[in-house]
Design a protein around this nucleic acid. Structure first.
Lengths: 389, 389
DNA sequence: AACGTCTTCGCAAACGTTCCCGATAGTTTT
DNA sequence: AAAACTATCGGGAACGTTTGCGAAGACGTT
């Protein structure tokens, strides 16, 4: 009773094993393998019935028009009769049509999404940058997906890969302190995906960058300390492979040299300033035989840690110890006599990078790589004001 | 010389206008319209040559196998010869293949992305929640896209629409203070997209919620004030359409009543506490003829504003005025005598919501809606410590 | 020889859009 | 009346995957 599906023969059929639960046959005459399901498959086909979302095709069918017409109507394109358009729009509303962005993305090969990779979240700096960028991107109709490299080069690489796979339209990135190789970034250039670096930038790659005037800011901060009569100023700096750390160190040195202060190498400490590290370094500096009379720290949390330790040790601020931080965290305005610090325009950084990426995404024309330097502001508070000025 | 493309006739051809730059003809015999481009189209086809990214098809072609084989090899599926797989992997590396997540998303109808909508960014509360959720989601291999409703119901609706269009796998949302209608949320239920509410929740919709023990926290905070000898305690509350505001007000009232304190209605102010509003309300309260001897504010920024104003007016804290805030912002530890406040487990809130949405995304089985209540902690500082306890 | 098992791979249909072309018909100009 | 123009609409390829199902052998077992 089994007929070959090709030659319609019945005699020369022989069994040839099972495949996925179905009997398999071989026709000896035409030498053709074929299978025949024993059970009806209706049950399984019912099983995998998925939740259906109304598509353009549904609208087209129910209106008796073509997909293209519906698509045109939905997008207010030309070549469409106003009545037809209205009918489509009504039907879309009635069927609760929600466009499938995924299909759109695939065909257009763009996602209306900008990616952002930041090294960490724990200082308020990056969250604020995100807020600024988010505002600009949202207003321009773009989404923002954020990833966190956690200061790890390997994670940064996997982040960029994920960004590539997700076909973001542009990338905003602030580098890891471990990042010394930039191949994972040049991939974006090759792919024609715009890229903007901010804060943690590098010189080795030729893309737009947004930074602040770290050198100048440090210079002014240290000069401010000197003007207030501090002589032996220590520097608590960040890891030296970061450009920002180098620049801030340069500013410190320049100010010291300009005013003829001797720079004592053991008073310069560079490294990743976790809270624990800040305490250790602070301990070291404050217990020094010939202890510094001021400390310029590269972030506010370290500066505050120093202030707390000084308070514990009975060292008065600003009389016996001047302290200056960097970034103007919210708590810096309220602690002790107030922490003098360098305010970074965080929102502005976010807005600027976002503005820039939007330009690059929209314009196909290559815009020359440029470094945009935003201005910081020295906020003078009690922790460094010793001369009444 | 023009032949009809159907009947091959030459004589009965006549011109019939232009369409998009091409001459159009009509064959009179077979009554058939057709066009014939005058210029060669090679130029234009070269023009629109797009940047090509290597696809699975490229690998398949260069290896002489089929797409399916490549796909299976790339995903470590079964039914694949180890040698073939290795060849595919090598070729993929060689051609710098990056999978196209968009195509994957389309065919799988999922995006590996969780959406999050928050009303605002300016308090550190939501950024911290984001950090917690981000951590969990990243570890689980999910992306996070964040949108901001800006406390506007309309924006919230458009946000949810965008989330739907982008086919997120799950949504975390904290509602706007304007949100009284929840149709835009029930859409997610209908679509089978899991939803978790946090912080700004509502009772009208039956989904998992993550909140803190607002009532209890308020109760304890006010009781703490009473224990410290404060009698006439004012309450600076949030907008009353928010459940959190209602709960905190309830806690305030309960504590006052339990200890037999009279609740004076003009000492309860509810509203959106911007910095400006906080100043206005604070002014009002502190200038009252029979001024309160303590203020329980519903967030720290308002409490701090009160403290600053008290300082300006020469009202001593905590002797003449006790102040308690809510949320434990970073600056609260450092201001004046220290601000007593209710610490919210922000990271934990983020982690919990994220954990939950991941469960819902993975399990098709419906988990019963449940409200998870996280514990707050009363952080006692100088602004309310009057009895040495 | 007849039948069963196992491994490996290809075909082709989705997934839901967008958009290039051309088709059709009515109207206007030459 | 021929030619041109205008306004609408449909067909169908493309976007790059995944995956169900079957094909083609090789080999083992009665």
């Amino acid at each position: 009773m089994i007929k070959c599906v090709k030659c319609e023969q019945v005699d020369s059929i022989m069994k040839a094993g099972y495949v996925r639960g179905k009997q398999r046959y071989l026709c000896k005459t035409c030498n053709y393998y074929f299978t025949q399901s024993e059970k009806d498959v209706s049950a399984s086909s019912v099983m995998k019935r998925r939740r259906h979302q109304t598509t353009i095709i549904d609208i087209a069918k129910s209106l008796g028009v073509s997909n293209s017409t519906v698509s045109r109507a939905l997008h207010g394109h030309a070549d469409i009769n106003p009545e037809t358009r209205q009918a489509v729009l009504d039907k879309a509303l009635q069927l609760d049509y929600q466009p499938n962005q995924l299909a759109y993305n695939l065909v257009k090969s763009k996602t209306n999404t900008i990616g952002m990779i930041v090294p960490e979240f724990h200082n308020p700096f990056f969250p604020n940058v995100i807020i600024g960028a988010h505002e600009v991107l949202t207003n321009a109709g773009y989404n923002l997906t954020i990833m966190q490299s956690n200061e790890s080069y390997q994670v940064e690489i996997s982040n960029t890969k994920a960004m590539l796979a997700n076909r973001i339209d542009g990338l905003l990135i602030s580098l890891t302190q471990e990042t010394n190789n930039f191949d994972h970034l040049s991939v974006f250039e090759k792919r024609g995906i715009p890229l903007v670096l901010f804060n943690r930038v590098c010189e080795q790659i030729n893309v737009p960058k947004v930074v602040v005037n770290d050198f100048e800011a440090s210079f002014l901060a240290v000069e401010h300390l000197i003007m207030n009569g501090y002589e032996r100023i220590a520097h608590l700096g960040g890891p030296l492979n970061l450009l920002v750390s180098q620049e801030r160190l340069r500013g410190y040195r320049a100010a010291m040299e300009k005013h003829g202060k001797t720079i004592e190498d053991h008073m310069i400490i560079q490294g990743m300033l976790t809270q624990q590290k800040a305490r250790i370094y602070g301990q070291y500096l404050l217990d020094l035989a010939n202890r510094p009379d001021a400390i310029f720290a590269v972030n506010d949390s370290s500066a505050i840690e120093i202030m707390l330790m000084a308070k514990e040790k009975g060292i008065s601020i600003p009389d016996e110890l001047g302290v200056v931080g960097f970034s103007d965290n919210p708590e810096s305005a309220y602690i002790g006599p107030g922490l003098t610090t360098v305010r970074q325009p965080t929102y502005e950084i976010g807005r600027t990078t976002a503005d820039w990426i939007l330009q690059l995404v929209d314009d196909e024309d290559v815009i020359l790589p440029e470094k945009r330097v935003l201005k910081t502001e020295l906020i003078v508070r009690g922790s460094s004001r010793r001369c009444g000025n």
